[in-house]
Design a protein around this nucleic acid. Structure first.
Length: 284
DNA sequence: CCTTGCTCGCACTGCAGTGC
DNA sequence: GCACTGCAGTGCGAGCAAGG
C-alpha cells in the first residue's frame, strides 16, 4: 500500500480499521516507530486517526478470518473494532471463533452480526439501519429507480429502499442545490446536515447569490474549512464567527456567534439585519 | 501501551401538519 | 391520496481523557 493518498481516499482508509492497520504496518520502521508517531504522521496526509484508534485497528486485524469474513459485506468501523476487542477480552477468541462458524452474515448489518457474535440476547430486535448514505447518493438511487420503473413515487421508493419518505424528499432538495455549491463539497463531505443548512440558506439568499459565493469560495487560497464555507454562505467572512441555521417554534432561526469585542462585528451584523429585513424568502 | 467511560455531533426514524 | 415539510427523539460513531 502506498502513502500517496488524496484527502478523501485517506479518510476512507482511516475509517476502516483493517485498512488502517495495514497502513500502519506499511509505514512501521520507515515513517514511524510507534502508534503516536504514526498518528502524527497520518495527520500530515489529512488522515485523522488517534494512536488509540490505530492500536485497536491493529488488534482487530489480528482476529482470525472466520470472524473477519463475517463483516466482508457489512464492513467494520472503529466502533466495531472496539466491541470485538471487548468481546475477545470477556469471552476469549476461541469461543468467538466457534460462534462465528454458526453465523450466516447474509443480509445482516454489522450491528446484528456483532450482536450474534458476542452472544447478545435479542440481537436485531431493536435494530435500526444506519446506512450513512449521503443525500446526493440517495437521490441518485431514487432517480435511477424512477427511470427504471422500480417505483413511481417517493412513498413506493421509501418502502423499497428501506428509508423514510422524508429522507428522500430532503435528499432531492440537497441534490437540487446549484452545481457550484455542490462542487465545494467533494466526495462524501456533503452530509445531510450541511445539505439541509445550504438548502435553507439558498432559500434565504437566493440561488444566484449562493452561486456567486460558491464561485468566489472555490477560488479562495488557502482552501476554506467547512465552517468558513458555511460562514461565507451566511454572509460573513470574519474570523471567530460561527453561523448556524436552526428551527425553533415553527420558525427558521439564523444564529450568529462572533467576538463582541470587535467593533466591526457590530457594524457587520447591523448591515446583515437590515439586508435580511428586505429579503422575501422563496416559497418552499 | 492498553482499555474503557464519557461526551458530543450527526444520521436517521417516525409521525404530524400542510398544500396541491 | 400523494408529496413535501418540520421536528423531537433515539442511537451510532468517534474523540478525549484517565486509570491500569
Amino acid at each position: 500500500m502506498n502513502l500517496n493518498l488524496t484527502p478523501d481516499a485517506g479518510q476512507s482508509v482511516v475509517d476502516n480499521p483493517l485498512h488502517l492497520a495495514a497502513l500502519y504496518r506499511t509505514g512501521y520502521g520507515k515513517r514511524w516507530n510507534s502508534l503516536r508517531e504514526a498518528s502524527k504522521q497520518l495527520l500530515s496526509f489529512n488522515m485523522r486517526a488517534s494512536a488509540n484508534r490505530i492500536q485497536q485497528a491493529v488488534k482487530v486485524s489480528e482476529f482470525p478470518d472466520e470472524i473477519l469474513n463475517l463483516f466482508r459485506q457489512a464492513g467494520i468501523v472503529n466502533r466495531t473494532a472496539r466491541e470485538l476487542i471487548r468481546a475477545k477480552n470477556e469471552q476469549g477468541l476461541d469461543r468467538l471463533t466457534i460462534r462465528a462458524g454458526t453465523i450466516d452474515p447474509a443480509g445482516k448489518s454489522r450491528t446484528q452480526i456483532l450482536s450474534l457474535l458476542c452472544g447478545n440476547e435479542g440481537a436485531g430486535s431493536s435494530y435500526r439501519a444506519y446506512t450513512n448514505e449521503r443525500p446526493i447518493v440517495l437521490n441518485e438511487r431514487y432517480r435511477d429507480g424512477l427511470r427504471s420503473g422500480l417505483w413511481s413515487s417517493t412513498r413506493e421508493a421509501a418502502e423499497v429502499m428501506g428509508v423514510t419518505q422524508s429522507r428522500i424528499a430532503e435528499a432531492a432538495m440537497v441534490a437540487a442545490l446549484p452545481e457550484e455549491v455542490q462542487a465545494l463539497f467533494p466526495g462524501q463531505s456533503l452530509t445531510s446536515a450541511i445539505g439541509w443548512q445550504l438548502v435553507q440558506l439558498t432559500k434565504l439568499r437566493g440561488s444566484r447569490a449562493v452561486r456567486e459565493v460558491a464561485i468566489e469560495a472555490r477560488a479562495s487560497i488557502p482552501r476554506l474549512s467547512r465552517q468558513q464555507l458555511m460562514n461565507r454562505f451566511a454572509g460573513l467572512k470574519g474570523k471567530g464567527v460561527d453561523v448556524k441555521v436552526k428551527r425553533a417554534a415553527g420558525r427558521l432561526v439564523l444564529e450568529f456567534h462572533c467576538d463582541a469585542d470587535d467593533p466591526a462585528n457590530e457594524t457587520r451584523l447591523s448591515m446583515i439585519a437590515m439586508w435580511l429585513r428586505d429579503v422575501k424568502p422563496n416559497a418552499r
